[in-house]
Write a protein that binds this DNA or RNA. Structure first.
Lengths: 203, 203
DNA sequence: AAGCATTGACAGGGTGCGCTGTCAGAACGA
DNA sequence: TCGTTCTGACAGCGCACCCTGTCAATGCTT
């Protein structure tokens, strides 16, 4: 027997499977954010240059793939903003500067690949199977953001929660309109207004 | 010949057609906001107690029906908030009270029938064919709200636009979470925080 | 009562997609 | 070189839905 656990194309079986999964995720992002194409397994497989067979190797179904993509993007946002905040901290920044750094990291990430914002913020809201998770993630970010702002104790618990949701929800809509070109603004302006709003909300 | 332009069941042909259209819109709302059912023409017709045939009498296709529902709800919100503001005006209220009255009218409308909020705010964002119109509507409301607040001239045009989108988008997300029961708050608290935020944003 | 518009039920073709199975060829280890 | 595994292309069944057409029943008008 051959190949049994061995390499193929210079890669191990695990590595190849991971590579295919990665390709499929990228393809999911491409197809999902393309208004012209409707998101179907066949389309994703074509985009990835793989056949349906390998789709099932990595994902149980279409929603599963989208869910995985959502988690992946959320992870990226989380680590990017966390890293920015930590770096600002290390550089001796104050709370305002740290907040701004985190927001800037978020905006930069969306500028680098707007499709990620479209998928995670807009499209995910349109898939019933993902909506719950998307809401959860928004609330997590709302809490994290409020904590990041490290401000005076809020008026009440529900008030802080409300303010956090207002801010994150607003950012989602704002960034959406911005990515659509519906709002003329530079990244700096977005970061500016957002930072000011966040600090104002918790003041 | 009979019926030709005559009445049927005590109603004229126009009236009956309008009644069917109305039933179909209500059915669209019911099916669309039901997570258990997927939104299909057949399901809507069943819900309305009508056959597909009458669906095409009122709408060209599924998206057309959803679009009509979206417009209808947007109209309701617009007139409810406008009326509340005018009534407050007539009662000699100041700008803050008028703003609060409008926001309260909006919240009351969603409390009366949460499905309308779900459909217009959440679900409409998930339908590619409606997304553009939904964004347009949000922007209209953002502008109207900013005007309603009647405040100091904004720092810049884009700043006012950004603030408006932040507020309306935040309200959408907040109200969504609230309708879902994810946020424990009374209508009064929602109205309170929203009013304060709006005035703060444009201060 | 007669006749016709109106209505509701239903059936069936067409389509797009999910999902599975088959099969030949490529790449590998021995 | 040989045998095995891995890979990609494709065909086909099943299903859900869109959409149209047919047909009998109903209710109106004269």
């Amino acid at each position: 027997m051959a190949g049994r656990g061995g390499t193929y194309g210079g890669l191990s079986a695990d590595e190849r499977a991971r590579q295919r999964r990665s390709k499929l995720l990228e393809a999911t992002l491409a197809v999902w954010t393309d208004p012209e194409r409707n998101t179907t397994m066949t389309a994703i497989c074509n985009e990835a240059g793989l056949t349906e067979r390998y789709f099932y190797e990595s994902f149980a179904n279409l929603d599963d793939a989208r869910r995985a993509l959502l988690e992946s993007i959320a992870g990226e946002i989380e680590s990017a903003t966390r890293r920015a905040a930590e770096e600002a901290d290390a550089a001796g920044a104050d709370a305002v500067q740290r907040t701004r750094a985190a927001i800037r990291a978020f905006v930069d990430l969306l500028v680098a690949d707007p499709r990620k914002g479209r998928a995670a913020i807009i499209e995910a809201g349109g898939v019933p199977a993902l909506r719950g998770r998307r809401t959860e993630l928004l609330r997590e970010f709302a809490h994290a953001t409020a904590a990041e702002a490290q401000v005076l104790p809020e008026r009440s618990t529900s008030d802080g929660e409300i303010a956090g949701l207002l801010f994150i929800g607003g950012m989602a809509e704002l960034v959406t309109a911005w990515l659509d070109g519906a709002v003329q603004a530079t990244p700096a302006e977005i970061v500016d207004t957002a930072t000011r709003t966040l600090l104002g909300l918790h003041a």
